[in-house]
Design a protein around this nucleic acid. Structure first.
Length: 779
DNA sequence: ATTAGTGGTGTTTTT
DNA sequence: CACCACTAAT
């Protein structure tokens, strides 16, 4: 092999033999405390392997120890491996742990999210990838607004074609590695979508922007097209490690396969039972295929759970056994049984919140730190009620997810100015702020601008620069152009934080928000953006690209210019929407969606809103595998808890501005009754709606204090009865309708005259029917 | 050109 | 409820 010039980008920096002596000593430390399977995984030779790692089985530890072991035993240098995760949090965690194990600088290492690494690769080879150096990244919001804009200019009625549908279509295809030209369009509609997909890509190219999926697709295409680069990266990344492998989509899998070539080893760690991103193209199928293509029998199962007490684990195991498509794996623990799970049935969502509040207070009094307690829910909208209760009680809490720092409108506005400084062709950014604050550029002017741009096939910016309707200096379009140009000039010799500060100041956003009612918070956030830039710079400004040089290629970008720093910062903002929340360090109750909780663990976990329609979510019903994915989600929720696990649900809940009546989640009866203690107090008896339809609610042995009256006739497992004469139907019941024929009741709401049921008719699908009018008869 | 108000609509999860 | 897109009034 020919030795590469330069920084020794890929060549093994150490003599393998020199490390033989240190190997045993050093690895002894690393491997200490690992169980047999873990040790086996960590010390595998250079070969591909699939590590089936159950929840709490030490997955991250194995992954990071493997990396440390490979480096410490001298098998490879830090630059010869690539490790990829899905979340920034996981990537950071990995880096932190590696730094703790090894005295090496992790900044040059290729460890990050798929999107982050692809971004890095595209920055380094933007020319080969056909991108401007300053290409910007669209988040889903940006993407959607570009699509809306596109549909508008194409004269497409967005009644007939909802922008979201097109977005979904585009992303879905990109995630399968398909360009518009490769889409099989068999009907009029999909041909139309495909045309628009092609037009969308052209528009992105014109603007120099890429969406999330494009980062991957572009990177994939770059590697498949460019043999030199492919060979370079294949030579470099001898070891490829993948975290959360069950969450990879088809394209990501192909990307990995391309990088691995025929000689490199892929060490894939995953858990098919925790695959909860199928909705965005993830395919646990990759695990089967990987075993066939690469691992070929090299499968190691990590089944010992170090996290939870046995009751919790048994509950999770029992639940997940209801899924069919599984690789098969059962977690066990050497811990004791611990406490039973606690199930609370509330009459309303408010009452549910009150109960949760009570319990959290008790736990706190018992000495459990608030940061060790997680309050989980299926969808973000559910956090409102809970937050409200917590806020009124003065209990410190922290909400993860929801609107994130870089997604706030004032931040998006500021970023739009910055994006224009870096890349004025970014039409989306221009449209966002050309008249914010107001500069007298209205709809009419914009129309002319867009028309001119479209005629000449140029960006809005170019059109704006050469437009005769420029008007008087300092105002209107001309004023805007001058502003951006001036900023571009000034930014050439300012530091990143100074650029951000100057841009915010010159943009007039602060002044604008001073006149707004609730502007104070927004101004604070704008200042926070400067702080974020300072912090970003202090941490080295993203990845260290100095090791990304490729022999025979121009060095990537112009690394140390302010513009480069700005680019990195903008990419960071798009890719890492921001763990930028106040009171990050404080001891606070942790609120998040179940999705956001993946990978975390807590002393106590409260899973709320366990109701049909919410969890499992009603939208999951249509999708194939939808219900199984919901169950995996529930599995993830349960396995977050170490010691105590609460399950709560409410009979009625305010949602979308109206009260909905729900029945208990079907997942509850899937948990063995012996593991669960019902903790309903008198509160639940008050104002109860009608029978609980948790099939287990009438089972003997349940400690149902204050249990509600239920007629004996209904006491049959699997069928909650009906006591309320105002509501003579129950969910799950077969019914007959005069017009629609036979069907099954899938949900119900309201009572008395307002009572409605949702029926899944065999012939005509889902329908809501008002009981007062619809002639429904039990069948 | 800008804003305030209205009506209609859609809603999961995230890099 | 919350976010739009559109309309009417300034």
């Amino acid at each position: 092999m020919q030795r590469l010039s330069g920084a020794g980008t890929w060549a093994l920096p150490y003599n393998r033999n020199a490390f033989v002596t240190t190997l045993s000593v050093a690895s002894g430390n690393l491997l200490e405390g690992l169980n047999e399977q873990q040790r086996l995984a960590v010390t595998l030779p250079q070969q591909s392997a699939l590590i089936l790692a159950g929840a709490g089985s030490g997955k991250t530890r194995v992954l990071t120890t493997r990396i440390a072991w490979l480096i410490q035993t001298g098998q490879i240098g830090p630059q010869s491996l690539l490790a990829v995760t899905f979340t920034n949090k996981a990537a950071r965690e990995m880096l932190t742990r590696i730094s703790a194990m090894l005295p090496i600088d992790t900044r040059g290492m290729w460890i990050g999210t798929f999107h982050g690494l692809c971004n890095r690769m595209l920055r380094a080879h933007h020319r080969d990838a056909g991108l401007p150096q300053t290409f910007q990244i669209l988040d889903s919001q940006d993407q959607l607004s570009l699509i809306k804009r596109l549909l508008r200019t194409m004269g497409v009625d967005d009644e007939k074609l909802p922008p979201r549908d097109l977005q979904y279509f585009i992303n879905g295809n990109k995630e399968h590695g398909r360009r518009a030209a490769q889409v099989d369009a068999f009907d009029e509609h999909s041909r139309r979508l495909t045309e628009l997909y092609a037009e969308y890509d052209r528009q992105c190219d014109r603007e120099g922007v890429v969406d999330f999926a494009e980062l991957l697709l572009r990177s994939f295409e770059l590697l498949s097209r460019n043999e030199v680069l492919r060979a370079h990266y294949q030579r470099r990344f001898v070891h490829i490690l993948v975290d959360e492998f069950q969450d990879t989509n088809r394209l990501q899998y192909r990307w990995l396969r391309l990088l691995a070539g025929s000689d490199n080893a892929i060490f894939a760690v995953g858990d098919d039972d925790q695959s909860i991103y199928a909705f965005r193209g993830a395919s646990a199928q990759n695990m089967f295929e990987f075993e066939r293509d690469f691992a070929r029998g090299a499968v190691i199962k990590l089944e010992q759970n170090y996290r939870s007490h046995a009751n919790i684990l048994d509950a999770a195991n029992a639940l997940i056994r209801h899924n069919h498509r599984r690789l098969g794996k059962d977690l066990w623990t050497s811990e004791g049984k611990g406490e039973p799970l606690r199930l609370y049935e509330a009459a309303t969502d408010l009452e549910e919140a009150a109960y949760i509040l009570d319990e959290v207070r008790h736990l706190r009094a018992e000495g459990v730190r608030l940061s060790e307690i997680a309050l989980l829910y299926r969808s973000n909208a559910q956090s409102r009620v809970l937050e409200h209760a917590l806020f009124n009680a003065g209990l410190p809490y922290r909400v993860y997810g929801g609107l994130r720092f870089f997604e706030r409108q004032e931040i998006k506005h500021a970023l739009a100015y910055l994006r224009l400084v870096a890349n004025p062709a970014d039409d989306g950014a221009l449209l966002r702020v050309i008249n914010l604050p107001a500069r007298g550029v209205g709809a009419r002017t914009l129309e002319q601008l867009q028309e001119a741009a479209r005629m000449r096939g140029v960006s809005l910016w170019q059109s704006a620069c050469s437009t005769p309707l420029a008007g008087k200096a300092g105002a209107g379009v001309a004023g805007f152009v001058q502003l951006i140009e001036q900023l571009q000039r000034e930014c050439r010799d300012l530091s990143l934080p100074a650029i951000v500060e100057r841009t915010i100041e010159r943009s007039g956003l602060i002044a604008y928000y001073e006149t707004e009612r609730d502007g104070a918070d927004r101004i604070e956030n704008l200042n926070e953006l400067v702080t974020a830039a300072t912090g970003f710079e202090a941490e080295g400004g993203g990845f260290d690209a100095s090791q990304d040089a490729v022999p025979g290629e121009a060095p990537p970008g112009a690394p140390d210019t302010p513009l480069h720093a700005l680019e990195s910062f903008l990419a960071h903002a798009a890719l890492e929407a921001g763990e930028h929340q106040a009171q990050a360090g404080a001891d606070a109750l942790q609120l998040m969606t179940v999705h956001a909780a993946k990978g975390l663990e807590f002393h106590t976990v409260l899973v709320s809103g366990l109701e049909e329609g919410l969890f499992p979510h009603e939208n999951s019903r249509g999708q194939d595998d939808g219900l199984e994915e919901e169950r995996r989600l529930m599995y993830v929720a349960l396995t977050r808890a170490r010691r105590r696990l609460y399950l709560t649900f409410a009979q009625s809940r305010m949602l979308h501005g109206q009260t909905r009546y729900n029945v208990a989640s079907r997942f509850l009866p899937e948990i063995p009754e012996g593991l669960v203690q019902r903790v309903n107090d008198a509160r639940a008896a008050r104002g109860s709606w009608s029978p609980s339809s948790w099939p287990g609610s009438d089972r003997a042995g349940d400690s149902m204090r204050g249990s509600r009256r239920e007629p004996a006739a209904s006491a049959r497992a699997g069928a909650g009865g009906f006591a309320d004469p105002a509501f003579p139907f129950r969910v799950g019941q077969n019914v007959m309708h005069a017009k629609f024929g036979p069907g099954v009741i899938v949900s119900a709401e309201g009572r008395g005259a307002d009572a409605r049921v949702q029926v899944n008719f065999r012939s005509s699908g889902l329908k809501w029917l008002a009981l007062e009018y619809a002639k429904l008869t039990p069948a």
